[in-house]
């Protein structure tokens, strides 16, 4: 069963459509990367997948069930997003980690918190005020805060943009690990084609709100069907 199936999905403001995807599939347990130039509608697509916005037209089927205007809470809570700029709460690192579960009326054990802090190299920062962290640390807290929820789908919106190579490495390792160990479906939006190549099973190109081509990552980079994909991976597509 697909995690997502999209058919004729459009998201428009007044006269301009920022997303116009005729069809798209996100397969269970895969890492799908969406690349494309800035303003292509990639972030809006993720917001639609996280049910933060509702498409103007079209249908989104999530785990076999069509999603209407009112998304049931338990459906919405199976998905979460890590954004490019993490917004942490003015609390300690560990209570940021607890936050999502607290919303669900659950209390994680101390060892669970500690496990996630260790996994992301945050063990010493448990009690630090979250707002005092560096950008890389903050993004790792945001990732841990999302992963502790055990989502069936994890949406990543430029998660490593502007981070140093050390932090990029830590975060990419963790993405790979949870994908293989917990079979979490991952949709990764990035403008960095090398990151897509390193992580994704399949990669898609988005331009002007449309999904131009989706292919297995190897094929996407070596022998794409569309000439625009070829131009983009060569770095010739200038916008």
């Amino acid at each position: 069963m697909n995690t997502y199936t999209l058919a004729g999905v459009r998201h428009c403001y007044e006269d301009r459509c920022v997303v116009a995807v005729e069809e798209m599939e996100v397969k269970e347990g895969e890492i799908l990367a969406i690349v494309g130039p800035s303003g292509a509608g990639k972030s809006t697509l993720l917001r639609l997948l996280n049910f933060l916005e509702h498409p103007t037209n079209g249908r989104i089927i999530h785990e076999g069930l069509p999603v209407g205007a009112e998304v049931p809470l338990e459906v919405r809570r199976r998905v979460t997003t890590v954004f490019q700029h993490p917004v942490l709460l003015r609390r300690s690192v560990s209570s940021n980690l607890r936050f999502g579960l607290k919303l669900r009326g659950e209390r994680p054990s101390e060892t669970e918190i500690q496990t996630w802090l260790d996994a992301l190299g945050l063990a010493d920062l448990s009690d630090a005020p979250a707002r005092t962290l560096s950008a890389g640390e903050a993004q790792r807290v945001a990732l841990a805060r999302a992963l502790i929820l055990g989502p069936s789908a994890l949406l990543l919106d430029e998660p490593t943009a502007n981070l140093d190579p050390y932090n990029v490495g830590l975060i990419e390792d963790m993405i790979r690990r949870i994908n293989t160990e917990q079979t979490t479906t991952i949709v990764l939006v990035t403008h960095n084609i090398f990151q897509a190549r390193r992580l994704a099973d399949r990669t898609g190109l988005m331009i002007g709100g449309e999904l131009i081509e989706v292919a297995a990552t190897e094929k996407f980079f070596s022998s794409p069907d569309d000439h625009r994909t070829a131009a983009f991976v060569r770095g010739d597509l200038v916008y």
Binding site: F83, L103, R104, R145
Partner: peptide, 22 residues
């Protein structure tokens, strides 16, 4: 507060009420 906060909270599974309270 950060304009992205409510979006982030919703993405973490907050209801409207929880979003407002947080």
């Amino acid at each position: 507060v950060d304009a992205q906060l409510p979006v982030q909270l919703r993405a973490l599974g907050a209801t409207r009420r929880q979003t407002a309270l947080t």
